[in-house]
């Protein structure tokens, strides 16, 4: 999920503890801040710290107007071959190709497990919102293909767009089935998204902030971890007792707007409910279901219905990211 969803749910989790609200009324925002900060912390640890220290075995840094799709495909295949000779995971870093302050050359890497090959294709130039820049759509361009030396088991999406900011990391590791398992972003949620890490941080700060803060930390951190389990990638939930990521339940994708918004909005309603309940003498009488209905179901439901009606006839607009699942045969460059 997006950072704000995790942040909001962390704060909402904190508001379930009465000392959070009591302290805030006295002017002490500590527990609110802890809820938000530890709600977003797992991703902060990965994206703002860990990934800069994560060593790779192969760095693929395409040069504009020089590097071809075949070059990239060959290098990826070489990385898989390298992994065959090693017990440890081989990590391949794919860099993005920046063309301007707001322009990125998109390329797509796709693994075909059936044909045991990797395919690479350049797409349009996209902006930072991943929206293609008009006029930069490729002609029927070359597709780079390289055979993989062994069967590949794919645990995430078979196709990855490499476009904005930091490019992805691919991990390849020998598995027990005489093949290779493909790991997408192996450094992400490797240890940071563990329930045990929440306990670790709470114990670390317990002597300084007290047991109440420790409980808030555990609740907020756990909320983040459990929310991410709703997705595809999953997390290593009990690091260091477990070694690999447990698959998610595949209900949603991290960038989907509806689940993100619903989480944020529901968190806000829960915060409001907790603050309302904590009043000594409420001036207004409202119930939980009234808040959820009038504050959540009605406006969101109304919006959803209207959107459905307005978009009933529309096709996918040209503003969506180009669907690269169709890989036509073409001549390699």
């Amino acid at each position: 999920m997006k950072g704000i969803a995790h942040f909001a749910s962390g704060v909402a989790a904190a508001t379930f503890f009465p000392w959070t609200l009591a302290a805030a009324q006295e002017g002490n925002p500590l527990y609110f801040i802890l809820g938000g900060a530890f709600g977003i912390l797992p991703d902060t640890l990965d994206f703002k710290f860990y990934r800069f220290f994560y060593k790779h075995d192969i760095y693929i840094e395409p040069v504009p107007n020089e590097t071809t799709p075949q070059d990239i495909a060959d290098r990826i295949a070489a990385g898989v071959a390298l992994a065959m000779d090693r017990e440890k995971m081989v990590r391949i870093k794919l860099s993005t190709i920046r063309l301007g302050a707001d322009y990125w050359q998109q390329y797509t890497v796709k693994f075909d497990a059936e044909k045991q090959q990797v395919m690479v294709k350049f797409g349009p130039v996209v902006n930072t919102g991943q929206v293609p820049v008009p006029g930069t759509e490729p002609e029927k361009g070359a597709v780079g293909r390289a055979a993989l030396p062994c069967p590949l088991h794919i645990t995430y999406d078979a196709s990855s767009n490499v476009d904005i900011f930091d490019g992805p990391t691919f991990g390849f590791k020998k598995d027990n089935q005489n093949g290779m398992t493909f790991h997408f972003l192996p450094w992400h949620r490797e240890w940071s998204h563990a329930l045990t890490m929440g306990v670790f941080f709470s114990l670390l700060l317990l002597p300084f902030l007290g047991w109440r803060a420790a409980l808030v930390i555990v609740a907020a951190y756990s909320a983040h971890v459990l929310e991410d389990q709703l997705g595809f990638m999953g997390s290593n939930l009990f690091f260091p007792f477990t070694k690999s990521r447990a698959q998610g339940v595949h209900i949603m994708r991290s960038g989907d707007s509806l689940p993100n918004f619903t989480t944020v909005w529901l968190s806000c309603l829960l915060m409001f409910w907790n603050m309302y309940r904590f009043q000594a003498a409420p001036l207004h009488a409202i119930g939980f279901f009234q808040i959820i209905f009038w504050g959540g179901i009605l406006p969101v439901g109304f919006f959803w219905l209207v959107m459905k009606w307005l978009t009933r006839n529309s096709k996918t607009a040209g503003h969506e990211t180009i669907d690269t699942s169709e890989w036509e045969e073409s001549v390699s460059v």
Binding site: N65, T67, L99, G100, Q105, V125, G135
Partner: peptide
Amino acid sequence: MKETVLPG
């Protein structure tokens, strides 16, 4: 990749 002069 072919070189394109990007808008702007």
